[in-house]
Nucleic acid binder design. Structure first.
Length: 259
DNA sequence: ATTGTGGCCTGCCCGC
DNA sequence: TGCGGGCAGGCCACAA
């Protein structure tokens, strides 16, 4: 997916749908709705309602409907949101730049003739009615030092904790690797072992990284990105980067300056 | 309870 | 040029 940065762009795109009435819902992929909701049930809940506002928590985009219900949108690893045929993001890393209609998994038609759709080749995204927001930790853009310290009280690796959406919402594999690389922290290090000063530093780095990569245009625009391959070199000190699996994910880090 | 692992899906890229 | 293997920005169910 899209990580927090891309989902925020999707949310902004969805803002174009605010005030517009949903006239039809297409669910070409019957498994795309969570909780075993059928296409008929999704349609019944959405058709005739109007989107009143949008929010985002972590990687979840939420549309509030005038019915009082909420529609949650998740984009998995390859999902894109296209509103009125405007794709805010043309290409996702590790996904195709194509916009094949057969990859449309969920389509909202508006009474004014516009369309909002999720195009997702790999089908890891989903839509959900009234998602349980309490299962998400604080959004990474807003997290306080206190909350980050609390989140890191774990014997797991710092990377596993940062990826855990119930502790901190919004960071994915690329953003976590980039942030830990910038902060000089070994991803495999125990989360609990970070002292207060390191946690404060990490928080600043995460927020700065999010701001900066947003300006650059996406989670894949990190300084580490071009070296995420076999034989990659640390852009900071020239050391050979380490490639391994941490927290079940491919992890790139610098053995020289990440401790 | 907490934590790690496998699996879900499909497209793309690299090397033979 | 064609083909197969490996890989992928996420998240859930499941087992220990």
């Amino acid at each position: 997916m899209p990580e927090l940065i891309e989902v925020e762009l999707y949310r902004q795109a969805l803002d174009a749908a605010v005030g517009r009435r949903i006239s039809a819902v297409l669910t070409p992929d019957p498994t795309y709705a969570r909780n075993n909701l059928s296409g008929d049930e999704v349609r019944a809940a959405l058709v005739g309602t109007t989107i009143e506002s949008t929010t985002r928590i972590g990687k979840l985009a939420v549309a509030a409907l005038d019915s009082g219900h909420q529609l949650g949108l998740r984009f998995g690893m390859t999902g894109r949101l296209v509103v009125d045929d405007v794709a805010v993001i043309d290409e996702l890393e590790y996904s195709s730049g194509r916009d094949d209609p057969s990859w449309d998994r969920f389509v909202l038609h508006f009474a004014d003739g516009g369309v909002a759709r999720i195009n997702d080749p790999r089908r890891f995204g989903s839509v959900e009615l009234d998602p349980d927001l309490t299962r998400l930790g604080p959004d990474a853009t807003l997290i306080s030092a206190l909350a980050l310290t609390a989140a890191l009280q774990s014997d797991r690796s710092v990377k596993a904790v940062l990826l855990d959406q119930s502790r901190i919402a919004g960071l994915g594999n690329l953003l976590v690797d980039e942030s830990l690389w910038r902060a000089g922290i070994d991803p495999a290090r125990s989360a609990r072992s970070l002292d207060d000063e390191t946690v404060r530093h990490l928080r600043r780095v995460i927020r700065r990284t999010l701001t900066q990569l947003t300006r650059r245009g996406g989670s894949h625009r990190g300084d580490l990105q071009d070296e995420r391959h076999q034989g990659g070199i640390c852009p900071s000190d020239g050391a050979s980067l380490t490639r391994r699996t941490v927290a079940g994910r491919t992890t790139i880090s610098c053995p020289a300056h990440q401790r």
